[in-house]
Every structure is written in structure tokens, then in C-alpha cells.
Amino acid sequence: MEAVFKSDRGKIRKLNEDAGGIFRNHYAVLAVVADGMGGHRAGDVASEMTVKLVEKKWQELSSELKAGAAEDWLRQTVEEVNAELYQYAERHPECNGMGTTLVAAICTHDFISIAHIGDSRGYVIDQSRVVQMTEDDSFVNALVQSGEISKEDAEQHPKKNLLLKALGTKGKADPSIKTIIPEHGTLLLLCSDGLSNKVSEDEIAAAAAQKLPLDEMAESLIRLANDHGGEDNITLAAVKVLLPGEGGETL
């Protein structure tokens, strides 16, 4: 199973408030992307804390997770991280109001389980067909879902960046979780909105169709986002599933 993580500050921002990583154990790969918010360094605190907490809980796992158990683990982990972020901000006034998006996926040869909160996204690419697996937890996407505005209108809406859900809030986080069955060559792409706001699904499909090494494909997508303006931090994690017996290698 091939995997890569890349993050770029972009062309405008002075600070990279995104975080993430690829974390392996003996049977699975965990991919994580978090996009912090809050300003005055609170955004990068939130995203970095989130990734470190998720990684710590992942490394503490002592047994293999099946699909249903993976969903349960993701849900519990997101809730625990949400509570820890909120309590940290309560104890540190300089971090008041900090928060972060999160998209995280457990990837095995048998299943991929994706947890999501905020507007960082998860895509699955099969045979150059790009499918968005997450729905943005945003004010504008709620208007799109209700039919009040079109997807085209949403791209230019003045409240495009207003989130309805994020980690670091009081109470339950209530992440969205999906599980799919991968095929040989299935490509999972997790990214912050610095990529998804600048690179279209057609451009993602075109990059995947070039059959470049995963590292080069990731670099090309980040370069494209910067070429299109690069106003935000740009972060992605990509995992390609290579099934045993189909020319694939072990994890």
C-alpha cells in the first residue's frame, strides 16, 4: 500500500495552520489531514494537537480493527480529541476559539473507513473517476443541499468559509463516517480546502490518470493549487490500495 503526505504554506499565508500525516501499523494505514482555525497561532495549535492525539491513540491500538470496529474507533477518537481541544482552549486564553477541521481514514486491503468534520475533504479515485466521499460541514453547502443556491453560486458566496461544525467545540463533535470496499488501485485523497478550492475534480482525475508515482502526483496537485492562486495552506494525504495477488505489496 503506497501512501504520501504533503503540506505547503501556499503563496500568501505567513503561517501553515494545516497538519496531518501517514501513520502505519502492521495491518493498516491511517491518513490524517487537519486545517486549523482561530488566528494568533491558535489554528496551528489546534491542528497539530489533533494530529498528535490521533496518532497517539492509533499507536496504542493492540489489535486489528475490522470495518465496524474501525468506524467505532474513529467516532470515539474524534469525540475524545474534540473534548481535549476544548479543555485546552479553556485553560489557555490565548487559544480561545481555536478549532480545526479533520478528515481521517483507516485504510486496509479489505476496507477504507473515513471520518470527517469541517470542510477538509475525502475523495476516492477509481479508474480516473473522482468521487467526493465527504460533504462540507459549511453554511454554504447547507444552502446548496437545501436547493437555495447552486454549486456555482457557492463558489463565490461571501460566507463560503463559514463552518457549521469543527473540532474544539463544547459538546459532541458528531463526525460523519463512511466505509467503502476498495479495488486494486483505488486511490484515496484527503485534502484541506486550500487544495479543493483551487483544484477541480477534473484536474484531480487528470493528475491521477498520468500514473505518476504517488509522491510526484501529490507535488503536481500542490503546484496546481499554487498556480491557481495559492491563497491558503495546501495539504493532502494520499493512499493507493494495492491488493495482494494483484501485484500489490504488503502494508
Rank of each mutant, 00 (worst) to 15 (best):
K211D: 15
G245A: 11
E216N: 12
H228Q: 11
L224G: 13
V239M: 04
E216P: 00
A238R: 08
R223A: 06
N233M: 00
T235A: 08
L214Q: 15
D215V: 11
N233T: 01
L214D: 04
A238H: 05
L221Q: 02
L224Q: 15
Q210C: 14
D227M: 12
G230V: 06
A218T: 05
L224V: 11
A238T: 00
A225E: 10
L221C: 08
L221M: 09
V239K: 05
K211A: 14
V239T: 06
G230K: 06
L212I: 08
E219C: 02
L242R: 11
Q210E: 14
Q210V: 13
L243Q: 10
M217W: 12
P213V: 05
G245M: 10
K211L: 10
A225G: 10
E246C: 14
E246L: 08
A237H: 07
H228V: 00
I222H: 03
G248C: 07
I234E: 03
T235G: 03
E231V: 04
E249N: 13
H228G: 04
R223I: 05
P244N: 08
D227Q: 15
G230E: 01
D232S: 05
E219W: 03
A238D: 07
R223K: 14
L212D: 04
M217C: 13
E219A: 15
L236V: 04
A238M: 15
L212S: 11
M217N: 10
I234Y: 01
L221I: 04
E216H: 14
P213D: 07
L236C: 10
N233P: 02
N233Q: 00
S220Q: 15
A218P: 02
E216L: 13
N233F: 01
Q210G: 11
E249P: 00
A237C: 04
L212G: 06
A218Q: 03
M217V: 14
D215G: 12
P213M: 10
H228I: 01
V241M: 11
L212N: 07
G247R: 01
G229T: 10
D227F: 05
I234S: 00
L221V: 10
I234V: 12
N226S: 03
A225S: 13
D232W: 03
D232I: 08
L236E: 08
G247Q: 07
D227V: 12
L242G: 08
S220H: 11
D232V: 11
K211E: 09
H228M: 02
A237G: 15
A237T: 04
N233H: 01
R223Y: 14
P244E: 03
S220E: 09
V241F: 13
D232Q: 05
L243R: 12
A237E: 07
V241S: 07
K240G: 02
V239Y: 08
K211F: 13
A237P: 07
N233K: 03
G245P: 02
P213I: 12
I222R: 00
A218G: 14
H228Y: 04
S220A: 15
D215H: 10
E231P: 00
D215C: 02
D215L: 04
H228C: 05
V239L: 06
M217E: 13
I222A: 01
M217F: 15
D215A: 11
N226F: 00
P244Y: 06
G229N: 11
L221S: 05
Q210F: 09
G229P: 12
